[in-house]
Amino acid sequence: MLSYAVRGLTRRHGAGEHAVLANDGIDLDIGRGEVFGILGPNGAGKTTLVRQLMGLLRPTSGSIHLFGADVVAHPETAGRAAAYLGQDDGALADLPVALAIETTARLRGLTRAAARRAGRDILEELGLVALADRSIGRLSGGQRRLATFATALAGDRPVLVLDEPTTGLDPVARRAVWRALDRRRASAGVTVILVTHNVLEAETVLDRVAVLDEGRVIACDTPGRLKASVSDAVRLDLVWRGDPPTDDPVVAALERRSAVTGRRWTARLPAGEAREALGWLTTGPAFAVLDDFTLATPSLEDVYLALGGRARDLEHA
């Protein structure tokens, strides 16, 4: 079952010669229980896209269906299934954290008592209990974002649409957010749609990711397959403790194909070759002078750069 089905979504900002295509013919199918990411640079049209998914912005053309309901014709239906975390929290800034969560839960239809219980649970889950009575506007940037994220969890919606939920969060808080999302997906099949700048976040938590550039989806797949589609090469980093044994044929071959920075060698190799080389090094005599090694797949950042570059080339062609 699909959560969102989006077809030909186009949104033009402005008119005449100043018109900008913020979204350009976007098609997306987002399954129930998926953690779906939207990755792209500033100005790529990510926020425009999620605001349309929430019925907050009328598309210039195209269709959006949420569990089969037509969001373009009936924008108010989005709020009945999806919770939204926007980038600005001004509406909540003067509220104490606990009350902000409780109020949001009540606005999503919970009774006062149920909203209070939900608030307590969420505060505990995100480690916000100590801040319950502090006003959101007076918290530090990261705490403030986490408190606002907590309001999106209130009322247990089957879909969460989150615009950069972890911006400014420290690693501990970021993991608390990821765990909270994962728990809801596992226990209730909650769909998460997440706008992100953060490559680590994209690689850690997303089932699939749509890469947005200049309003278009230039790639949409699992992070693993996206990375594989760019290159099957992996990065092998070697750090030598002493002089590398260059009379060893594998070491000699690696040296030829590495960028050498002092005692650090960085080579890009097909995954199979890298595994073989590493196996040879760690079981042979070279291991005695090998201080450290890492084997890493390309990051989504590499993917974005590769795909983005290609898209720009196409436009100039």
């Binding site: 199918d29 009945r80 239809g109 099957d232």
Partner: peptide, 29 residues
């Protein structure tokens, strides 16, 4: 060394993971 290769599992469908479970009914206003 960096060669363009077939994506791993390129033959698999790259569509959405379809979650099981009961149909979702829109909440009330």
């Amino acid at each position: 060394i960096i060669a363009r290769a077939a994506a791993d599992g390129a033959d698999e469908a790259s569509g959405p993971a379809v979650g099981a479970g009961p149909a979702v009914v829109l909440g009330r206003r």
